[in-house]
Design a protein around this nucleic acid. Structure first.
Lengths: 244, 244
DNA sequence: ATTTCTATAATTGGCGGACCATTAAGGAAT
DNA sequence: ATTCCTTAATGGTCCGCCAATTATAGAAAT
């Protein structure tokens, strides 16, 4: 930003890249290029260390990084090794959770984003949900009724949202929803949550009926009403537990 | 699933958790609890190793994991150490990129999600963008005109989207947009991209005019038209380079 | 011949120590 | 006051070792 008139020194790129970074980079490249695919097994740590001409420690840090990033899985024992993982959105969720914990995101932003997101999802699901999807949603709602613990019912709710997102046939939305669910979970507390849960179940059935009837606007309205109740509760209870 | 009648064995929690995982967990806990805040400095590696009663290697793997997760930053030298980072969405973007590279997500899903997302963003920005935001958008569009290289103009486009997302006053959308931008960047290739870029600039000015006039529907329509042109190009060029 | 047990080898997980490179701070020389 | 050198702190890397775990092959029992 400063001194855009100066002739751009651009000395900078000294940047002593660390060994493990280079290794990660190379492996990621092979991944993007398709040389490495899910299920492939990387050579043993000691072999890789020789190949990359680094110590085993450095290589281990690289593997650890990739494991934490969800790219590989390190399995111990004979026939063990580093296996390229199939894609799982868990790490994205984790990253988002970390981001929120580092304190930049407010509850209001989370709920607003969720509301907007579910709008899209409901509309898409309305257009694309198969009968299988709808039946699954109903089954989950039914199961929620039978569950006894608060936690179990909450798990059902998360699953309901996940299945709904899957009904859009677009996995991106599933990732977003999972992330927001995981983060908002931390706020779901309070004594009156149990009674709220009960009254939310009916709303889930209503939503399925609207979806089956392909009544997009009614479905969206139902979802909004539903979420606004949940968020009102969340906001109230987080205010009580607020640190600020 | 099997034998739900049996009295819940619950032997399970053997699970030899690895040393570095336990360490990461504890530090993450302190982070969520607020005991650790951005800017704080963790003790030196050697001290921490003693405190956690693990070897320095194991501790280093934990720190490395946290660094890769974007939670801390390791700085070398005297007065160096592990510093808790301020929140940055880079890691989320990285995680999403990894997820896509692992092969689960199609281009169609990406573009559809982007389209839907920009719909929301434009609507929110229309309601909330300040004159400062709008001026910044115009400045970026102006700058795009003056840039000569394809890459530089693309960088301007990314920035334009980022500022637009910021105008919603909700950082969640910024993260989503950044992620999709980074991923879609890989597909932006082809000889006719340069001419496309030129014609896109006008669209950006139009969008700002609609936003300033608070004409939500016109703004959304402009953005859709804009993105659909881009995506048509991307799809055409990725088809040529498809591996399947 | 088949099953079961056992020993072995391969492999990652973890540990401890040593040395190097980089950085900041303070003191010495100018 | 400025510059240069020394020193200490710290992360980065490397090496060697042992422990834990698991597939596999071979031995033993049926």
């Amino acid at each position: 930003m400063a001194s855009s008139s100066s002739p751009k020194p651009s000395f900078a790129p000294i940047k002593t890249r660390r060994a493990f970074e280079v290794i990660c980079e190379q492996i990621r490249e092979q991944l993007a290029a398709g040389t490495l695919k899910a299920g492939d097994k990387l050579p043993a740590e000691r072999e890789l260390a020789v190949e990359f001409q680094v110590s085993r420690s450095a290589l281990r840090e690289a593997l650890r990084s990739l494991e934490v990033a969800g790219i590989i899985r390190n399995v111990k024992g004979a026939k063990g090794g580093a296996f390229v993982q199939t894609a799982e959105p868990d790490r994205i969720v984790q990253a988002m959770q970390d981001y929120v914990h580092l304190g930049d995101i407010s509850l209001g932003e989370l709920t607003e984003a969720r509301l907007a997101l579910q709008d899209i999802i409901v509309r898409l699901a309305c257009a694309r949900a198969t009968e299988t999807d709808l039946a699954e949603l109903e089954a989950i709602a039914e199961r929620t009724k039978r569950e006894t613990s608060v936690e179990a019912r909450y798990a059902c709710a998360v699953e309901y949202y996940a299945v709904l997102a899957r009904a859009t046939k677009n996995r991106i939305f599933g990732i977003f929803v999972d992330s927001l669910s995981a983060i908002l979970h931390e706020f779901v507390r309070g004594p009156d949550y149990e009674t709220l849960q009960q009254s939310l179940i009916e709303s889930r059935f209503k939503l399925v009926r609207h979806l089956r009837a392909k009544d997009e606007e009614a479905a969206v309205a139902e979802m909004r009403k539903h979420l606004e109740r949940v968020h009102r509760h969340v906001r109230k209870n987080s205010k009580a537990a607020a640190k600020g």
